[in-house]
Computed example of a mutant assay.
Amino acid sequence: MNARDDLPVLRTLRELAAVVLSTPHLYVRWSRGPVADEASAESRDGLTGIRLPGLSANPLDVEPWWQDRSAELWVARRLYDYSHLPHDKGEGVRPWVLRGRVGGRGPDNEPLVRDVKPIGWIGESVIEEAQRAVEEQERAAEWGPMRRRGG
């Protein structure tokens, strides 16, 4: 993995969505960053401690069933679903975008990514914007209640 922690920072949902739309096979990973992950190039199952064959990440590609809906809202949802991880995993954990090859699936059916190429950090302002976008959808009754809260 050719990784550095001085990656560019994506600062808006619009900017992140543009990257997702222009670059296929992107993932978001919540960790202390590429350099910290480079040492092991693998994740561990949180329940059993078993080593997993790749880095646990979540896909950012917009699914075809999303049709012509907003890519920004898609990305917001993908971030919102896991925005609790910095709180759960501790200080220094933040989201970053990577490209790579799926080497398997983790215990939550998440992709385990190998041959990782870091793309950029996702700024805290993007997470805040994502939370507002999802909460606005909930208030507008366009989505059912998420029954979970980020952060």
Rank of each mutant, 00 (worst) to 15 (best):
K89C: 08
D37P: 07
V20E: 04
D88M: 10
W96A: 06
G49P: 02
V93E: 09
S43A: 07
R44Q: 11
G33Y: 09
R114D: 01
R78G: 01
D61N: 14
L55S: 09
R77V: 08
P53Y: 00
T48R: 04
P86D: 07
V93H: 13
Y27I: 03
A41G: 12
H84S: 14
D37W: 07
N58G: 02
G46Y: 00
P86Y: 01
Q131M: 12
P53L: 02
S22L: 07
V35A: 15
P95N: 08
V126K: 09
E38D: 14
G46F: 00
S22T: 11
L112I: 03
P111H: 01
L26F: 01
A57Y: 05
H87G: 13
E110G: 02
R44C: 11
P59D: 03
H87Y: 11
A71K: 05
G92V: 03
A71N: 11
E124T: 04
A41R: 15
Q67S: 08
W66S: 12
L60W: 05
G106S: 01
L52G: 03
V126C: 02
K117S: 14
A57L: 06
G106F: 01
E72Q: 13
L26A: 04
V62L: 13
Y82Q: 12
S43L: 12
V35G: 10
W65Q: 06
P34S: 10
R44M: 06
V102T: 08
R77D: 15
V134T: 11
G92H: 06
D115R: 09
I127T: 14
E63C: 00
R132F: 08
D45Y: 01
Q131I: 09
R94L: 12
D45F: 00
L47D: 03
G123W: 03
A130N: 05
L55H: 10
D108E: 01
A141W: 11
L79W: 05
A41D: 15
L26E: 05
E124Y: 08
R101E: 14
N58L: 12
A71G: 12
K117D: 10
P111L: 00
A133C: 12
L21K: 13
R78K: 13
L73E: 11
P24S: 03
Q131N: 15
R101D: 07
L73T: 14
S22I: 06
D37H: 09
Y80K: 11
E63H: 08
R94I: 02
R101T: 14
A41W: 04
S83P: 10
R139E: 15
L112A: 05
L47E: 04
D115F: 02
E42I: 04
N109H: 00
